[in-house]
Design a protein around this nucleic acid. Structure first.
Lengths: 148, 148
DNA sequence: TATAATAGTTTCGTTACTCAACTATTCTCC
DNA sequence: GGAGAATAGTTGAGTAACGAAACTATTATA
């Protein structure tokens, strides 16, 4: 059952929190990834997801809610830099399974430590209760925006 | 006091929720604002904030966590389209107070109805408890990312 | 009064996309 | 088995969304 009365407040909170949080984070990832590892934020996201197990252009696009062509280009750059490999699926040759190289793994670990440190700093002055609230809120946000 | 144990999970949830939610929303705003009102998402955000009371380039940049140059360009486009006016502050002529024109107000109302409807649709299959969780989580997110 | 700080703009460049068209493969169903 | 529909991925062209640095104009400060 819809809950119309809460929507305007909720929507306002959404506008006031999500875009700003994301802009700041992306900007920081750019600083780390671009300056230290000559990599764009989009490429970082692709690496991150491959490490988590997503292993095709379509799966990455679906997970990141972006277009296949954007992912394809990011993957291409990563392959050219030797961080990701494309292989073949003998069962369906349309599929192009992706995997991190050792170098890709190493770079990813290094970036992730820095990104995690920065995000942790955002969260470290929150109380345990607030951290719990945030955790649950983000899970609900994910649910609300996961396509059925 | 920092709470290091919860961080990796929290950070993972952040990555899985915020970027995707924001990309979907921005993409939708683009569809509405660009196709129906010939306006970019950035311009929409500027209009939205002016309507809420932010009335200078610097205030807008601060509120949106973006650069003054980006805001300046968006404002310029809105002024050229007759949706926003620049005026003068006789007390400090460096300030350029901004305001919506009647047309700007009208366009903003129209866009907002559509944007709100789309966001509401995302939220409408959540339970009242989940809506509350989400509201509190977003407030905490805002707090975590508001610069001290 | 020098100079520091602030508000805003402009220029130039890069990143982050999107859309449409394309190839290559596999599925479907008659 | 063959014609089309569907799927995976790529490519090209174009635009939106930024950011850094240099600039003007104005006001504060020492």
């Amino acid at each position: 059952m819809p809950n119309p009365t809460s929507s305007p407040i909720l929507i306002d909170k959404f506008w006031e929190s999500v875009p700003s949080a994301w802009r700041q984070t992306r900007s920081q990832i750019r600083r780390i990834a671009v300056e230290k590892f000559q990599m764009t934020e989009e490429q970082f996201q692709v690496l991150r997801r491959i490490r988590k197990g997503s292993a095709s252009v379509s799966a990455l696009a679906e997970a990141s809610q972006t277009s296949r062509s954007a992912v394809s280009k990011a993957v291409d750059a990563l392959v050219r830099r030797g961080l990701v490999t494309r292989s073949q699926d003998p069962r369906d040759r349309r599929n192009v399974p992706l995997a991190l190289t050792d170098e890709g793994q190493r770079v990813m670990d290094a970036i992730f430590v820095e990104a995690e440190a920065w995000l942790s700093a955002r969260f470290e002055h929150l109380s345990p209760e607030e951290l719990e609230t945030l955790l649950q809120g983000m899970e609900t946000l994910r649910k609300a925006f996961s396509n059925p």
